[in-house]
């Protein structure tokens, strides 16, 4: 029963990571842009959700707001800052988007104060339900698995079945050529960036409701999202999904199993500290192994 619950935990953690990483891989893959401000947009989504939910009393309106506000913030940032960076090298992009993190963090603190905000799940999503087999599991975590699957499917359909998707793929392959063919490349990039931001915002609103909505909440997310897309292959939605599930499973099962394994060869106290330290390194070891064996990532097209 514990193993079943931990497997389910690994799956839902993976889906959570996919939600966080999907927008980043889209922007990175299509636009070739390293966007460190992705975590800041995640934070913007969570704050928008918390503020709107608190003032209207509706979590669902909050979720809509997290999508809308993050998309708007993304579009604005693209037009004001990011647009000037496409022809610069990656170091300039890193610098500028790192500056954006600081601007967003302190701006948010200035607007909403020093203290974490309150954001609670609506009654319809809260509580635990009993699964077949008698396992009690939080309903909201099942919802996250579902939303992750829907977003994955939606993105796949968008990229492979729609005109916008064709343009996105074309832009990924050769941005000058599709510009010459009469596609408004500037507008396309704004749309893609806003879409990526909206995905980050949605993840912020959803995941923020079972975490702490506070300044700086985006930075750990950013690191994990980068690990996921490096493992999955940069720019690949499928890669992000597989990478996220791999990282989720590795992290959850590692933390559940490794301290116990260490306890067989050393005393309990040091097994607990060492074991948990090793467990927290596992995903980075996984990333290193993937990079050694397949430097372009599991589903990466380019090196």
């Amino acid at each position: 029963m514990l193993l079943a619950e931990q497997l389910l935990n690994g799956l839902q953690y993976g889906m959570m990571l996919f939600l966080m990483a999907a927008g980043l891989t889209l922007v990175f893959g299509v636009m070739g842009l390293i966007n460190l401000a992705h975590g800041a947009l995640y934070m913007v989504g969570a704050f928008a959700c918390a503020v709107v939910a608190a003032s209207t009393g509706s979590f669902w309106l909050g979720l809509v707001a997290s999508l809308a506000v993050a998309a708007a913030a993304g579009a604005l940032v693209e037009m004001l800052v990011i647009r000037r960076l496409y022809n610069r090298d990656h170091l300039d992009q890193v610098l500028a988007t790192f500056a954006l993190i600081l601007v967003f963090s302190e701006g948010t603190r200035w607007l909403f104060g020093d203290f974490p905000l309150y954001l609670k799940l609506p009654p319809a999503l809260s509580g635990a339900i009993t699964l077949p087999g008698g396992l009690q599991y939080p309903f909201f975590r099942l919802v996250i698995i579902l939303v992750g699957a829907v977003v994955a499917l939606g993105l796949w359909l968008l990229i492979s079945r729609t005109r916008l998707g064709i343009r996105i793929r074309a832009g990924e392959a050769d941005r000058e050529m599709i510009g010459a063919l009469g596609v408004d490349i500037a507008k396309l990039y704004t749309i893609v960036f806003a879409l990526g931001a909206a995905l980050a915002g949605l993840a912020g609103g959803l995941v923020g409701s079972i975490q702490s909505v506070q300044v700086g909440m985006g930075e750990p997310v950013l690191i994990l999202a980068f690990v996921v897309i490096v493992i999955g292959g940069i720019g690949s939605i499928k890669g992000a999904l597989v990478g996220a599930l791999l990282v989720g499973m590795t992290d959850t099962l590692g933390k559940a199993v490794i301290p116990g394994l260490f306890a067989r060869v050393m005393d309990t106290a040091s097994a607990n500290t060492t074991g948990s330290a090793v467990a927290s390194m596992l995903i980075y070891i996984l990333m290193a192994v993937v990079l050694l064996v397949r430097p372009q990532g599991l589903f990466g097209a380019r090196v």
Binding site: L2, E5, Q6, N9, Q12, Y13, M16, P138, R141, V207, Q211, S212, M217, P220, T252, K255, A256
Partner: peptide, 8 residues
């Protein structure tokens, strides 16, 4: 930020 494993 996620404690699902510990809660299990």
């Amino acid at each position: 930020t996620d404690f699902a494993g510990e809660i299990a």
